[in-house]
């Protein structure tokens, strides 16, 4: 289920990466205002009940003025928005909008007030990042919530920092840039673009399904708890099974 979701995300993200630059190249003012109009229509139907008629926020959702297109791209692109059930926080889920619709929504929200724009691919391409430096930055800024290798961790009262495995680099970049939900933001003044790229390079090195785990199966990467569980189940289980074999009486000859 989760895997399917990841594949879907990866595929759509890939599609987006392929088409987005072309769109932007051709973007002119008319196309832009058209997108804003379309976005506003989508917003009215899907978002306004919580975030207010024109993004001013309400009791059920924060103001979206000035959050910028990047926040929309992240929140709607990872399926966190629209929210399905009120809870401690909005979980990642299959997205409800097409990429074109998300772009229109982003354009509309972007028109409400200045905010971070959706990054160019060059901003988050892990190939141009320094993984070792990124590891240091990750341990300074990120691992306290997301764990050493981005397996995720718990926050207060049921909130959590989600696992970062196989998350599209663009979403990682946008999350740092915009600080979705309870995650603090890391604006470029605090964590410049190159440093963000380094962090993405580190995650790309240690936390994708292609990452090397030289020692073998990682047990989820949760450290001593999962190692202890393994020792108490498979480890001691295997050894006790052997004691039973050694201690069992050998088969006797049947008297018939």
């Amino acid at each position: 289920m989760f895997v399917v979701l990841l594949i879907a995300l990866a595929a759509t993200g890939g599609l987006y990466a392929a088409f987005a630059p072309a769109d932007e190249a051709q973007a002119d003012t008319t196309a832009q205002s058209l997108a804003i109009e379309e976005g506003e229509a989508l917003y009215r139907v899907g978002c306004s009940s919580c975030h207010g008629r024109s993004g001013e926020g309400g009791s059920d959702g924060p103001s979206l003025v000035g959050v910028g297109p990047a926040a929309v791209h992240f929140q709607v692109g990872t399926g966190r928005m629209p929210l399905q059930n009120p809870g401690a926080q909005a979980p990642e889920k299959p997205r409800a909008y097409t990429q074109a619709e998300i772009d229109q929504l982003a354009a509309y929200i972007g028109s409400l007030g200045p905010g971070p724009a959706v990054p160019e691919e060059s901003a988050y391409d892990p190939a141009n990042g320094d993984a070792a430096r990124g590891g240091e930055l990750f341990r300074t800024n990120c691992s306290q919530c997301h764990n050493f290798t981005g397996q995720g961790g718990a926050l207060t009262n049921g909130k959590y920092a989600p696992g970062l495995d196989n998350v599209e680099p663009i979403y990682i970049y946008e999350a740092m840039l915009t600080g979705p939900q309870n995650m603090p933001s890391f604006p470029d003044t605090v964590l410049p673009e190159q440093e963000k790229r380094d962090i993405i390079a580190w995650l790309n090195e240690v936390n994708t399904s292609e990452s090397a785990n030289p020692g073998g199966f990682t047990l989820g990467g949760f450290g001593p708890v999962s190692e202890g569980l393994f020792a108490w189940t498979f480890g001691i289980g295997a050894l006790v099974a052997l004691t039973v074999w050694i201690g069992a009486r050998s088969a006797k000859a049947r008297k018939s």
Binding site: T140, G179, P184, S185, F186, P187, T189, V190, P192
Partner: peptide, 19 residues
């Protein structure tokens, strides 16, 4: 900590976290 540069007030936005 990330850049090694001294911070100015305008670098730090509401909702951000700086080490």
């Amino acid at each position: 900590e990330n850049t090694g540069q001294p911070l100015r007030p305008e670098d730090i936005t509401v909702g951000s976290l700086t080490q």
